[in-house]
Amino acid sequence: GATAVSEWTEYKTADGKTYYYNNRTEESTWEKPQELK
């Protein structure tokens, strides 16, 4: 299949934890999204 550009962006909180934000759905998660595995 075609490689889609991930909708997920990786961010870090002030205390250094990583989370992921989906630009399309406006969803955020602590877990690494399936698309990034």
Rank of each mutant, 00 (worst) to 15 (best):
residue 1 G to Q: 14
residue 1 G to P: 13
residue 1 G to A: 15
residue 2 A to S: 14
residue 2 A to P: 13
residue 2 A to Q: 14
residue 2 A to R: 08
residue 2 A to M: 12
residue 2 A to V: 13
residue 3 T to A: 13
residue 3 T to H: 13
residue 3 T to S: 14
residue 3 T to R: 07
residue 3 T to Q: 14
residue 3 T to G: 13
residue 3 T to F: 09
residue 3 T to D: 13
residue 4 A to R: 05
residue 4 A to D: 13
residue 4 A to N: 13
residue 4 A to M: 14
residue 4 A to P: 14
residue 5 V to T: 12
residue 5 V to I: 12
residue 5 V to Y: 13
residue 6 S to D: 11
residue 6 S to A: 11
residue 6 S to E: 10
residue 6 S to I: 09
residue 6 S to Q: 10
residue 7 E to Q: 07
residue 7 E to N: 07
residue 7 E to A: 07
residue 7 E to H: 07
residue 7 E to K: 04
residue 7 E to C: 07
residue 8 W to Y: 02
residue 8 W to A: 00
residue 8 W to Q: 01
residue 8 W to T: 00
residue 8 W to F: 02
residue 8 W to R: 01
residue 8 W to K: 00
residue 9 T to H: 10
residue 9 T to L: 09
residue 9 T to S: 11
residue 9 T to Q: 12
residue 9 T to F: 10
residue 9 T to I: 13
residue 10 E to V: 11
residue 10 E to N: 02
residue 10 E to F: 04
residue 10 E to S: 05
residue 10 E to G: 01
residue 11 Y to N: 04
residue 11 Y to W: 07
residue 11 Y to G: 04
residue 11 Y to H: 12
residue 12 K to Y: 08
residue 12 K to E: 05
residue 12 K to R: 14
residue 13 T to E: 02
residue 13 T to G: 10
residue 13 T to Q: 04
residue 13 T to N: 08
residue 13 T to M: 06
residue 13 T to Y: 03
residue 13 T to W: 02
residue 14 A to T: 12
residue 14 A to Q: 10
residue 14 A to I: 11
residue 15 D to N: 08
residue 15 D to G: 07
residue 15 D to R: 03
residue 16 G to R: 00
residue 16 G to N: 04
residue 16 G to S: 01
residue 16 G to E: 02
residue 16 G to F: 01
residue 16 G to D: 04
residue 16 G to H: 03
residue 17 K to R: 15
residue 17 K to A: 06
residue 17 K to L: 11
residue 17 K to M: 07
residue 17 K to W: 05
residue 17 K to D: 06
residue 18 T to G: 01
residue 18 T to C: 10
residue 18 T to V: 13
residue 19 Y to N: 02
residue 19 Y to T: 02
residue 19 Y to I: 09
residue 21 Y to D: 00
residue 21 Y to I: 06
residue 21 Y to N: 02
residue 21 Y to Q: 03
residue 21 Y to K: 09
residue 22 N to W: 02
residue 22 N to T: 00
residue 23 N to H: 15
residue 23 N to Q: 12
residue 23 N to T: 15
residue 24 R to G: 05
residue 24 R to P: 02
residue 24 R to H: 09
residue 24 R to N: 08
residue 25 T to N: 03
residue 25 T to F: 02
residue 25 T to I: 03
residue 25 T to P: 01
residue 25 T to V: 01
residue 26 E to C: 15
residue 27 E to A: 05
residue 27 E to M: 08
residue 27 E to I: 07
residue 27 E to L: 06
residue 28 S to K: 15
residue 28 S to E: 10
residue 28 S to P: 03
residue 28 S to D: 03
residue 29 T to V: 13
residue 29 T to W: 05
residue 29 T to N: 03
residue 29 T to E: 03
residue 29 T to H: 05
residue 30 W to Y: 11
residue 30 W to L: 07
residue 31 E to M: 07
residue 32 K to S: 04
residue 32 K to F: 06
residue 32 K to Y: 06
residue 32 K to R: 11
residue 32 K to H: 05
residue 32 K to P: 07
residue 32 K to M: 12
residue 33 P to H: 02
residue 33 P to E: 03
residue 33 P to N: 02
residue 33 P to D: 02
residue 33 P to G: 02
residue 34 Q to T: 12
residue 34 Q to W: 14
residue 34 Q to G: 10
residue 34 Q to F: 12
residue 35 E to F: 07
residue 35 E to Y: 06
residue 35 E to V: 07
residue 35 E to H: 07
residue 35 E to N: 09
residue 35 E to I: 06
residue 35 E to M: 06
residue 36 L to F: 12
residue 36 L to D: 08
residue 36 L to G: 06
residue 36 L to A: 05
residue 36 L to K: 04
residue 36 L to N: 06
residue 37 K to W: 15
residue 37 K to A: 13
residue 37 K to Q: 15
residue 37 K to H: 14
residue 37 K to V: 15
residue 37 K to T: 14
